[in-house]
Amino acid sequence: MGSAKGTVKSYIGKPTPILILALTITVVFARIFNVATLDTLVIFTYFITIAASLNIIMGFAGYVSFGQCVFLGIGAYIYALSIYYVPWMNTLQKIGGEGIIIVGLFASSIAALVAAVVGAVVLRLRGAFFAIATIGLDFAAMYIVMGIVPFINPEQFYGAQVILPSHCLVDKSATFTAMLITMITVLVTNYLIKRSKFGMGLVSIREDEDAAEVMGVPTARYKTLAYTVSALFTALAGAIFYLNGGGVYSEAFDLAHTVDMIVMIVIGGLGTVLGPLIGGVIYYWLYDTLLIHYPGVNLIILGIIVALIILFAPEGVVGILRKYEVRGVRLREILE
């Protein structure tokens, strides 16, 4: 078998071929699948962004944050209300992608703060209890928004909606730039986490939290941090996505958004860096193809496909690929 010192190459401190690969894949797939208009590009990058965001808490730390969409909603609402009611924020976001990111970071920081506070408490729960608690959080937030927002925004009283007037809207190329920057940042973050002490600690929590704590991993702090970072990016994606859509309503809290994220991660491979990317690409393609060829029943078919993946390929694409070797180099090392 040879010495392990030879086969386990030092991947720390190496350049980041994975990222170059990631970007190439994105661009290539975008062309192959004919992702043409700016709107579809925004959706495409949005899918990958939210999947990679959830991957931080669900893939690495193993906590199924089923109510993750709560942060989409919080980010989207705060962003929309901010630019609607605070003129200088509207001016700021109008300068382009960077402006959107800056205002978006304001909105998503509040979401991250919520995650830090709630997470410190709710992350004491494990497994399904945690998942259910996050669903509870999502619904609590949604109903609070439905009850309160009409009074904050009385001009559009019904449906708790914030439809952005034309002077608040930005060019689609600006929202795409912002989403692309967010996507690349969250993918880089995934990569850096996976390669770090923090990331190894998170994975050990996923594998056996009690053993990890006894081995010295500060589990409570790590989990909360992962949840917060995950919420930050989810909220940022939500803010940009709903800005692109021209407004936000309570649908932003729909659990279906979490399903999108989970399905992509499961297809791609939980807890891997490329998983959300590959899963996002496949999901987008599946989503698009099914929508075009089987309108109406597209989501029914999608549900069945997901069920089959969970039953027969629970490790996802990356999980399957990493078992193979190419010229003595394990794909595991490249893909993760």
């Binding site: 050990s204 990890a212 010295g216």
Partner: peptide, 19 residues
Amino acid sequence: KPFNEMTVLENTMIGALFG
């Protein structure tokens, strides 16, 4: 209580990193 999906090396690294 090994971390099953991590390699033996990674398991041991956790010990060193957080010890």
